[in-house]
């Protein structure tokens, strides 16, 4: 219980991942979905850093990969917010359910 090990971190990461999936499923707002994506990415990052800490390989590969993940998330968020604003300009909402012109 008081010996914190890899599994503890993994459990937190897993729960964060699942909650991110839940947010992606239930939210209608495009930016809400993005928030879910950020949660999933954070879960992945906790995994990477925790593995790097506990696998005893003596390198920091996991940390560098998580650095890349953070940068990717930033790039994605920048573009996503721009696209959401464009959507809003055209449809006056960011509710993804209103985007129903394209169907079939």
């Amino acid at each position: 219980m008081f010996e914190i090990g890899l599994t503890h971190y993994l459990v937190v990461a897993t729960l964060l991942f699942v909650m991110g999936i839940f947010v992606m499923i239930t939210k209608r707002n495009a930016i809400g979905i993005l928030i879910g994506v950020e949660m999933v990415l954070n879960g992945a990052n906790i995994n990477l850093v925790a593995f790097n800490r506990y696998n005893g390989m003596g390198n920091i590969d996991g940390q560098i990969v998580s650095l890349f993940v953070i940068v990717l998330a930033a790039a994605e968020a920048a573009l996503a917010v721009a696209i959401c604003m464009n959507f809003y300009k055209n449809l006056n909402t960011v509710d993804v359910d209103h985007g129903d012109t394209l169907a079939g």
Partner: peptide, 15 residues
């Protein structure tokens, strides 16, 4: 950075 961008997006897109 990212979070502020998201909040910014929220502020600009919610009427």
């Amino acid at each position: 950075g990212t979070l502020i961008l998201l909040i910014f997006g929220v502020m600009l897109t919610s009427k």
